[in-house]
Design a protein around this nucleic acid. Structure first.
Lengths: 208, 208
DNA sequence: GTTAGCATGTAAGGAGTTACATGATTTT
DNA sequence: AAAATCATGTAACTCCTTACATGCTAAC
């Protein structure tokens, strides 16, 4: 049997199990409600992945016989190795974390991440989008030459859409920076309660 | 050997070969410059797909010995079956055509599509996005309850981004409608030159 | 003369989905 | 009593990518 384990899914599972132990079915519901719209994980990927993570001692699974004669639903829990792995994945500066998919999962876990990690990921994402913009702008230029109005229109819309995501990221980066300044260096704990976002809509036009 | 053929890639290939015969390498460059940023097809998927399409007589491939001692590059060309297949794929009302990926490919071919087909695809895409909006808005609501500001922020941004795509689509639909009215029923030919888009930026706020 | 680009392909692998099998439990 | 939902799992399949093998030609 081929080892079924992937970066995204593994990260998502570790992140959610850190919050509280859960069985697979529950886990899937949570994942799909938070990740939303893109990538709805199916049992066919979730269960094999959990199994593999069991094998690697990243999680421990205890069959719960509690509720009268269930098909012993298995409640998964992070092991200390799992916790370590989660930390490692979150702090990793792999460019993969700025993928469309992976970025979303990372973002979902921002509530339990240190400011500097959030910062790195936000910047990394912005960088990737700026690269994509370069690419797309060239496409727009080429479409203008070719004279196909639909292809032009498509790329123009994509450029706009990526530009907006960049703006969004820059706002977030600004907020992170302000927060880091206000808090000093002391509060770099991973489990600190997530501070409010979008708190001050007036002061958004100062420079980065 | 497993048959290597997919909807998206097949459609893209047929669409581009209709414009003019090409060899694989060239084809790939074109695909990647027009589809852009998302989905950059690799040779590993392109060549096997072409091979399969050869087997099905959707395309015919003639090795070109012309340019002094080339590794006989194969120029692919649509057969009549291929042309038929392209028509069928373009007119198909499968909901798959409104996928993120597939929609892009269809849009790329709008220059060679009839108005009614464009209309159907645009509407279908809009419908799919509205469904996604419902889903995402529920997520935003739930994130508000839960009180995780990052998850809230993520979904809020996604909602905004989908809303904007809907706006874009509605603009396009309006334009298509105007064009259809101006042209009457007579010009429903597939190879008509693509008319200009975004012609009248003033009249955008009339109702659908 | 070596790098870069043109050109065609194959094998293996990665990351997931769909469809199925199975059964218990709660709701209607 | 039927239907929905909870719950776990497997096998097969999809669709694409990476890495490799091969060799030619043009540019620097």
């Amino acid at each position: 049997m081929r080892p079924r384990r992937t970066r995204v899914l593994e990260l998502a599972i570790l992140g959610h199990l850190e919050e509280s132990p859960m069985h697979g079915y529950e886990l899937r519901k949570r994942l799909n409600s938070e990740l939303g719209a893109f990538r709805a994980f199916s049992y066919g990927s979730l269960y094999p992945c959990l199994k593999e993570m069991l094998r690697l001692d990243l999680v421990s699974g205890s069959p719960q016989e509690g509720a009268a004669g269930w098909r012993s639903r298995i409640v998964y829990q992070l092991t200390s190795e799992g916790r370590e792995r989660l930390r490692a994945l979150l702090s990793e500066s792999t460019p993969a974390a700025t993928d469309d998919e992976c970025f979303g999962v990372h973002f979902t876990l921002f509530g339990r991440t240190r400011t500097e990690v959030r910062m790195r990921i936000l910047r990394g994402r912005r960088h990737r989008l700026l690269e994509r913009l370069d690419f797309l702008r060239e496409r727009v230029a080429r479409a203008t030459e070719r004279g196909d109005p639909y292809i032009y229109e498509l790329h123009r819309h994509r450029v706009e859409s990526v530009e907006r995501e960049v703006d969004w990221l820059e706002d977030l980066i600004k907020q992170e920076r302000r927060r880091a300044e206000n808090a000093g260096v002391a509060d770099a704990n991973i489990s600190g309660s997530a501070p409010p976002l979008r708190g001050d809509p007036s002061a958004t036009d100062q420079q980065m």
